[in-house]
Amino acid sequence: MALWLAALLLMALAYPFYVVHRQTLGEHRPIRHTPAEWGADYETITHTASDGIVLRGWWVPGRGERAVLLLHGKGGDRNGEQTGIFELGRWYWERGYHVMMADMRGHGESGGKYTYFGVREHVDMLRWIDALDTKRRYRWALHGFSLGAATALMMQQKAPGRFTWVVADAPWIDFATLVKKELEKRAWLPPFTYPYVRWVAETFFGQSFKIADNQARCQRLCGRPVLYLFEDEDTLLTPYQRERLETLCPRAETVRFAGVGHVEAFRDDPKAYTETLKAHGL
């Protein structure tokens, strides 16, 4: 009996390691479509992160001074079939923007194994932009989806005044609440296991749940040029996340898209989505 109890305890302690590993894995896949399909000249660009990981993306020259960095979500990439980010890049380019599209670490054709919920990704992207735009010729906007949206918010906070606009499509606000919901949904772990899971993630996988949380960040960005987009049928982010944002920043500019799921608003209705962007000066 004692051996069985010891084995069960060991399994209970080990299982969260497996869960964290699975939930923080990125997703690599080859890039099939390129901006040549838009009729655009483009450059394949790379950047080596501070820990040696090589990131890959595109630079698509436009006209004038406006530039935009597009950031995919977890499990996505530059081609972004769930979000339609590739076609969104075309839309920005046709409006004259210089377009930067990147595979974040652990995704697409970039190196790395894990995702860090924006904590390392925002540093990667800030340094990449600085390396690309050394003379600060461009007026940058950021447009991110889910993980990419959280990354964009972190970039805006870290480099105030660097970005003219941030579009955050489906960012989490309260990270702990999101993690607890996902642990129960995907791993059958009740909320009381959260402190142990967090300890495992931070001690053995290099995560930082404190930095990944956007509540204080959204308060600090209140009144700054950030457009928050939410989808009414999002099964990842409950309405609580949007409501929490509106509590923390009553002045937050938010738009809700009806009848679509997580980060699917542009893909399902590009006209309504881009009209929203144009209405906000993008």
Rank of each mutant, 00 (worst) to 15 (best):
R90F: 04
W91D: 04
W91K: 02
G96S: 12
Y97M: 00
H98G: 10
M100H: 08
M101C: 03
G106W: 08
G106C: 09
G108D: 08
G111Y: 07
K113A: 14
K113S: 13
Y114F: 15
Y114M: 13
T115I: 14
Y116G: 04
F117W: 14
F117G: 01
V119C: 04
E121M: 02
V123T: 13
L126A: 06
R127K: 14
R127W: 02
R127Y: 04
I129W: 01
D130H: 11
L132R: 14
T134R: 15
K135M: 07
R137L: 15
H143Q: 05
H143F: 05
G144Y: 06
G148K: 06
A149G: 05
A150I: 10
A150H: 00
T151P: 06
T151W: 07
L153A: 04
M154C: 05
M155Q: 08
Q156S: 11
K158P: 02
K158F: 09
F163E: 08
F163A: 00
T164Q: 13
W165L: 15
V166M: 09
A168P: 04
D169C: 04
A170D: 10
P171F: 12
W172I: 05
D174Y: 13
D174N: 12
A176K: 12
A176N: 10
L178A: 14
V179C: 10
K181D: 13
L183S: 04
L183H: 10
R186F: 15
W188E: 10
Y194G: 02
P195A: 03
P195K: 05
P195W: 06
P195V: 06
P195M: 01
P195N: 04
Y196P: 13
Y196D: 10
R198K: 14
R198D: 01
R198S: 09
W199D: 08
W199Q: 05
A201Q: 09
E202R: 04
F204I: 04
F205K: 02
S208H: 04
I211V: 15
I211G: 00
A212Q: 03
D213H: 07
D213G: 09
N214Q: 15
R217C: 12
R217N: 13
C218S: 14
R220H: 14
C222S: 03
C222A: 11
G223A: 05
G223R: 09
R224P: 03
Y228V: 10
Y228P: 10
Y228A: 01
L229M: 10
F230E: 09
